[in-house]
Lab assay of single mutants.
Amino acid sequence: MTFKLIINGKTLKGETTTEAVDAATAEKVFKQYANDNGLDGEWTYDDATKTFTITE
Results as ranks from 00 to 15, higher is better:
T51P: 00
T2V: 15
T55M: 06
A20F: 04
G14W: 15
V21D: 11
T49R: 07
L39E: 02
D46S: 06
K50G: 06
F52N: 00
E19V: 15
E15V: 11
F30A: 01
A34S: 05
T49D: 06
A48K: 10
N35H: 13
M1C: 08
I54M: 06
F3H: 03
I7Q: 02
K50S: 06
K50P: 00
Q32V: 07
L12R: 09
K31A: 06
G9H: 11
E15R: 05
T11S: 07
G14M: 15
V29C: 06
K50V: 04
E56T: 11
I6A: 04
A20R: 03
E42W: 12
D47H: 10
A24G: 09
E19S: 10
F52Y: 05
F30H: 01
D40I: 15
M1I: 15
F30D: 00
T17P: 02
T25E: 12
F3L: 02
K10Y: 07
I7R: 02
E15S: 13
K10P: 08
V29Q: 09
N35R: 15
K10N: 11
T2S: 06
T2A: 06
N35I: 14
D46K: 03
K4Q: 06
L12D: 07
K50N: 11
Q32P: 01
I6G: 02
D40S: 14
D36C: 07
K28Q: 12
E27Q: 10
A48V: 14
D22W: 03
Y45P: 00
A24S: 07
Q32D: 08
L12E: 09
M1L: 15
F52H: 02
K10C: 13
T18C: 10
A26S: 02
G41E: 01
N37F: 09
T11L: 13
T49N: 11
E42D: 12
G38F: 11
L39Q: 03
D47P: 14
D40A: 13
K31P: 00
Y33N: 02
K28T: 09
A26D: 00
E42G: 06
E56F: 11
G41K: 01
L5A: 02
Y45G: 00
K13V: 11
T51M: 04
L39Y: 10
Y45W: 04
F3G: 01
K28W: 08
T44N: 07
G41D: 02
T44D: 10
T44V: 09
G9P: 03
A23S: 13
A48E: 12
N37C: 12
T16M: 15
D40Y: 14
G14C: 11
K31F: 06
T2P: 05
T44L: 07
A20P: 01
A20N: 03
A34W: 03
T55A: 07
A34R: 02
K28G: 09
T11Y: 12
T55G: 04
G9A: 07
L39A: 04
K4W: 12
K50I: 03
I54S: 01
G41A: 03
K28E: 12
K28A: 12
K28D: 06
V21T: 13
T17R: 07
W43L: 06
T25W: 08
T53E: 06
T44K: 09
D22C: 04
A23F: 13
K31G: 04
K28V: 11
Y33E: 02
M1Q: 14
T49K: 07
V21M: 14
W43E: 00
V21I: 14
T25V: 08
T18Q: 05
Y45F: 06
Y45H: 02
N8Q: 12
T44F: 10
N35S: 13
N8K: 12
E42T: 10
T51W: 03
K13Y: 13
L5Y: 01
K4D: 03
D40M: 13
G9Q: 06
T25S: 14
N8L: 13
K4F: 13
D36A: 15
K31L: 09
Y45L: 02
Y33M: 05
I54A: 02
G41C: 03
K13I: 11
T44A: 10
